[in-house]
């Protein structure tokens, strides 16, 4: 599948989409407010049908958090990547997509657990892995996380 053709198709439904420099797959960067509307449009559009969220990744960059959505269209086998950036590092928040892609429910819990990114309207936002470890305070995947006991800096 040619990325250029896909780009045109996406621009047809999402005229404001911004594309990142070419990588492995076509990548759209977007502010966090648009994530729900983008996902909904990409899923519903009959030309695209991005219905399969196969990976959702949290990311702690120097100046912002990012949530990366890897989407696939099971009908046409297109793959795109959405990158939602969350500039507020103090109190990160983003809308949930767990009602659009049910698999996001667990992935978002994991990201919340590791990065402390709060997913608004998530049905069951609890820590998924670390909830029962009482001495685990904070979110370990943040780059500023310090744990002198368990992590040995090299």
């Amino acid at each position: 599948m040619n990325n250029e053709v896909l780009k045109e198709k996406i621009l047809a439904v999402l005229p404001k989409a911004e594309f990142a420099p070419a990588g492995q797959w076509l990548t759209i960067t977007l502010p966090k407010e648009r994530i729900r509307s983008y996902c909904q449009t990409l899923k519903d559009s009959p030309e695209l049908r991005f219905d399969f969220l196969f990976c959702q990744t949290g990311l702690d960059l120097a100046d912002q958090f990012q949530v990366i959505y890897h989407l696939e269209s099971t009908e046409f086998r297109y793959v795109i990547v959405l990158k939602a950036s969350i500039p507020n590092k103090e109190n990160p928040e983003i809308d949930t997509v767990s009602d659009i892609y049910r698999t996001a429910e667990f992935h978002e819990r994991e990201i919340y657990d590791f990065f402390g990114i709060h997913f608004k309207q998530h049905p069951d936002l609890r820590r998924i892995f670390l909830d029962e470890i009482s001495d685990m305070i904070g979110h370990p995947f943040r780059k500023d996380y310090k744990d002198e006991v368990n992590i040995i800096e090299r």
Binding site: F52, T74, Y101, R102, T103
Partner: peptide, 18 residues
């Protein structure tokens, strides 16, 4: 199955070509 990211033999049991 698609929505839940149900892949592998489990997904293919539901007809999801994954």
């Amino acid at each position: 199955a698609i929505s839940y990211g149900f892949t592998g033999p489990s997904g293919r049991g539901s007809g999801f070509a994954c």
